[in-house]
Design a protein around this nucleic acid. Structure first.
Length: 579
RNA sequence: CGGGAUGUAGCGCAGUUUGGUAGCGCGUCUGGUUCGGGACCAGAAGGUCGCAGGUUCAAAUCCUGUCAUCCCGACCA
């Protein structure tokens, strides 16, 4: 492809709409343009990357036994009413009506459609397992779309659904997908980590997320410094850590009341009363489906709302209104504690291990000290409620946890019977009995993966595409295309590369060399072949890898084969990646 | 949805306080000189100042409404 013919409007300045790295570079390099908030057009370069990612995903889904289908974006309300999600999904669903006032939505996901389809067409255990997938646009009306492609309202997703006869079958399908996902992210040449995840609203038991590692990631993950354990912070299991014995004066004896005028926060009490945060507790009030509950964690810990929500089994969980709390408990935020409360109390595992607790009195400006769990108060339940922190013991070995950030690009779930029961989707087993399908679902955000790849692979000059997903493998830059010997040499190499099946650009624009180099760096083409006058006299050209700073002089007749070698090595399909 | 901000040429911005013929840089077009990391000279095109009302002799500027976009938060695939 000649650069003069290629539609890639690059920008010299960062558009004001973007402030995350991937968004800025994708806009500047002419890969995408915004159409409206959270909705993007893919320009030729951007769409080529999308197609590269899509093709790798497709190959691995097929290899794992998946069959590709294409389901509708427009979905009737009835199906969602059947599954019960029409009302649960809420504002995030794009809804519309047709001319007859019938209700529809734009598909945010496809469990309802696929389950209905499979129920109608699959009747026997002989037809199972069945793995069906598609790659298409999804629609979610995010409260706040942001970060360009990272959190869009219209985005491209691969979603596969597995149907099995029983739970053992599901394990097999799940394992196939886990392996396929590992192969995919390795083939994409992204640095990633598979982590244990919360299965969230979709429900079901086991769940793993695939995180592309990047400082700018929205998700926080913990991993063990000794073993393979890694988990989303939302999910990470926290072993209780006992506090070393508290100061003598606060550990023993009866509970006492101390005046604490104006002291409202853990930090206030630590500073003015000399009570360290780990000898205090935080008592947080939540409204869980309208019911007031209290959650108690050690003063130096963070409450994990996801764990609390899962423990309560509620749909809606948010911080309670202060006025309501005052009415029920007799004090405002900052003076509350678990002693003598008339609301259910959920305590973290660490709370009973504390030798002496300081907490609010449920009376403004007073706190208790020397409180003991079991003597002065008890909880409705004691469970793991806090968020994991650096240095926590690993739940699986003697190691300790570390943290890093990642971008969630894939998520696999074991759904079990959730949808097959809701939609009453059944098959006949060997004994002629009707049974519900056991399902799994497996997603990869294709467009988000493109953004994540940029987030992970860029420098101050632009994008550095991993070879397997680069829009073009190589770019040929004649330093001065008006000099016929340079142009002829460039064209010769161009043709050689094309004949080897390399996707190659040739910068035939009437621009100065600096402009061509800047643009080549900006759009992130992995290999650049520069045809310059000095080297050309010795029948040599320069080969530069985008991810390295030095250039290499290569014989002009050898450069095509050399480039082909680098590319085929990067595109090698892994034989065995069972990780 | 709460809080904050911004809409002026393709992109980045100034001008708004104090109303008086719409500006700068980059990009684009023409001609010329250049040609190894975003060249230079000369000329040119391009904006009903987000939209709708209002005040005024006069509105980018003041007032009211509205739409859009972005950031923080809450929410969440």
């Amino acid at each position: 492809m000649r650069c003069s013919q290629l539609f890639y409007p690059t920008l010299r300045e960062v558009p004001s709409e973007a402030d995350v790295i991937s968004h800025q570079w994708l806009l500047r390099a002419g890969f995408i343009r915004r159409t409206t908030s959270g909705v993007y057009t893919y320009l030729p370069l951007g769409y080529r990357v999308i197609k590269k990612i899509t093709e790798i995903v497709r190959q691995e889904m097929d290899r794992a036994g998946g069959q590709e289908v294409m389901m509708p974006i427009v979905q009737p309300a009835e199906l969602w009413q059947q599954s019960g999600r029409w009302d649960v999904y809420g504002e995030e669903m794009f809804r519309l009506r047709d001319r007859h006032q019938r209700a529809y939505c734009l598909g945010p996901t496809h469990e309802e459609i696929i389950t209905t389809l499979v129920d109608a067409e699959v009747h026997s255990y002989r037809d199972l397992p069945l793995l069906l997938y598609q790659i298409q646009n999804k629609y979610r009306d995010e409260i706040r779309p942001r970060f360009g492609l990272m959190r869009a309202r219209e985005f491209i997703m691969k979603d596969l659904y597995s149907f099995d006869v029983d739970h053992e079958g599901l394990q097999v399908s799940y394992e196939k997908m886990r392996q396929a996902y590992n192969r995919i992210f390795q083939r994409l040449m992204l640095s990633y980590r598979m982590v244990e995840a919360d299965s969230g609203a979709i429900g079901g038991s086991a769940s793993h997320e695939f995180m592309v590692l990047a400082e700018t990631g929205e998700s926080e993950i913990v991993y063990c410094d000794r073993c393979e354990y890694a988990a989303n912070v939302e999910k990470a299991v926290c072993s209780p850590v006992a506090v070393e014995k508290a100061a003598e004066s606060r550990a023993d004896g009866e509970m006492i009341t101390i005046p604490t005028p104006g002291l409202r926060t853990i930090a206030d009490l630590a500073e003015h009363m000399g009570i360290p945060a780990h000898e205090q507790v935080k008592t947080l009030f939540y409204s869980a489906d309208g019911k007031l509950v209290a959650a108690v964690v050690r003063g130096d810990r963070e409450l994990n709302e996801i764990k609390l929500k899962n423990a309560l089994g509620c749909n809606q969980l948010f911080m309670a209104d202060e006025e309501l709390v005052r009415e029920r408990c007799g004090a405002g935020f900052g003076s509350l504690g678990p002693v003598g409360l008339n609301v259910p109390v959920y305590a973290d595992l660490e709370v009973p291990l504390m030798p002496g607790i300081s907490c609010g009195c449920n009376r403004d400006d007073y706190h208790y000290s020397q409180v003991k769990y079991g003597r002065d108060f008890t909880a409705t339940a004691v469970l793991d409620l806090r968020s994991a922190e650096v240095g926590d013991p690993c739940p699986h070995c003697e190691g300790h946890l570390l943290k890093m950030r990642g971008i969630e690009v894939g998520h696999i779930f074991q759904l079990g019977l959730k949808y097959s029961e809701a939609m009453n989707a059944t098959y006949l087993d060997k004994d002629g009995r009707q049974k519900h399908f056991v399902m799994g679902c497996y997603g990869i955000g294709i467009s988000r993966t493109m953004a994540a790849a940029v987030e992970q692979n860029h420098d101050q000059d632009g994008i550095i595409w991993p070879i397997p997903i680069a829009p073009y493998h190589a770019i040929i830059v004649p330093v001065n295309a008006n000099k016929s010997e340079q142009w002829e040499a460039a064209w010769k190499v161009y043709k050689q590369l094309e004949n080897l099946g390399i996707e190659v650009l040739i910068d035939d624009r009437d621009q100065r060399a600096g402009v061509k180099f800047k643009d080549a760096d900006l759009i992130g083409i992995p290999l650049r072949i520069t045809i310059g006058p000095r080297a050309l006299q010795e029948n040599r050209v320069e080969l530069k890898k985008r991810w390295e700073s030095e250039t290499e002089l290569v014989d002009i007749d050898r450069v095509a084969l050399k480039v082909a070698g680098i590319i085929s090595k990067a595109n090698q399909i892994p034989i065995d990646l069972d990780k």
